[in-house]
């Protein structure tokens, strides 16, 4: 399709998304906005870094919390311990995401499958212990508290609505960026890596370089998620990146589905909803999260998004079928 015809469509989509974002605060309560919507947004952004790695490059990484933590911690350290201005720290923290991804990618560039999982798990767990034990830099197990979210054009991001708008715009921006990357030569190479490593190499690509690039790109989302989470919580501690968070990201991505990167938001929403409302009915919230996880894994290979896409394609088929029948009967009537 020529660019000229594509632009208005993209513009219309942006306007639609903008209107939807603008409407959300009016439609939901303050509690839902803060506890469900904003939380799902930053958890979804972080989850998208993993959804991208798995769905696009076939790399199952358990080290995305390490990237998330690197960005979050860096921002907190720069502001609270070094007195850097907040936006400079934010810029450094966002840039730290791809850099941390690059480092993790470089370490694990020759691994795949189970070995990649074990290696990245080691990196994720190492980062947790580093945060917990290296007091001079990380303040040990208490981490950083009392972090004030910045002001943006006079709006205080520690307030719900401004934080929501910024998170939503960040989510859209990260999705758009990933979608752009997926259309570049690197994006195609990532999918080649996912489907057939050896063959990719035989076409002249270095699988190491491809792996490192994929980790670097995905690190961007984990970094942005880490930054917003610190604004949201006003704090970051080793608990933000411990093994349960590693598993949480995996659950988010599995429930959502990796067939599209946006599935991470769906997964994040489900997990956040269960965490918040399940305890009204049971005190076994984690059991319920686990059960939901298992049910979706058993029902669909591509998570909730896979189920939704299946329903959509079934609906389209049914629509076409009925339209075909109607046209056939109209033809008969004419004849």
């Amino acid at each position: 399709m020529p660019a000229s015809r594509r632009l208005p469509a993209a513009g219309a989509l942006l306007v639609l998304i903008g209107a939807a974002i603008a409407a959300v605060p009016a439609l939901v309560s303050d509690f839902v906005l803060l506890q469900i919507v904003i939380k799902s947004l930053w958890l979804g952004i972080a989850g998208m870094s993993l959804a991208f790695l798995i769905g696009q490059a076939g790399l199952i990484s358990l080290a995305q919390t390490a990237v998330f933590g690197a960005s979050g911690y860096l921002m907190a350290i720069l502001v609270l311990d070094h007195g850097l201005t907040i936006w400079a720290a934010v810029a450094a923290a966002v840039a730290a995401g791809p850099v941390a991804g690059l480092v993790i990618g470089a370490i694990s560039r020759r691994s795949s499958d189970l070995y990649l999982m074990m290696l990245t798990l080691a990196i994720g767990v190492f980062t947790f212990f580093f945060a917990q034990q290296y007091q001079p830099i990380t303040r040990g197990h208490t981490g950083f508290n009392g972090f004030d979210a910045p002001l943006l054009f006079g709006a205080d991001l520690s307030e719900r609505k401004p934080l929501f708008y910024v998170s939503a715009v960040a989510a859209v921006a990260v999705v758009a960026l990933f979608r752009l990357v997926m259309r570049t030569p690197a994006g195609l190479a990532f999918r080649g890596l996912r489907d057939n490593r050896d063959r990719l190499q035989a076409l002249g690509y270095s699988t190491s370089a491809t792996t490192i690039s994929a980790f670097a790109v995905s690190g961007f989302a984990a970094g942005v998620g880490g930054v917003i989470s610190v604004w949201y919580n006003g704090a970051i501690s080793p608990g933000s990146i411990d093994i349960t968070r590693i598993i949480e990201l995996l659950i988010v991505v599995t429930i959502g589905g990796t067939i599209r990167i946006e599935g991470a938001f769906l997964g994040a929403l489900v997990v956040t909803l269960l965490r918040n409302y399940a305890n009204e009915y049971t005190n076994r919230t984690e059991t319920l999260v686990g059960a939901a996880f298992m049910a979706i894994v058993l029902l669909s290979r591509h998570g909730l998004l896979g189920i939704l896409l299946n329903v959509k394609s079934l609906a389209l088929k049914a629509l076409r079928f009925f339209r075909g029948q109607r046209m056939a009967s109209e033809k008969e009537a004419v004849a």
């Binding site: 030569p185 690197a186 195609l188 076409l203």
Partner: peptide, 25 residues
């Protein structure tokens, strides 16, 4: 081959293999 790539994508991937911009963003 690559199960999830189209015929066209296979050929573009192969075409860029020897080029410098094969991993261009």
């Amino acid at each position: 081959v690559f199960a999830g790539l189209t015929v066209g994508e296979h050929l573009m991937l192969a075409h860029r293999g020897p080029e410098k911009g094969r991993l261009s963003l």
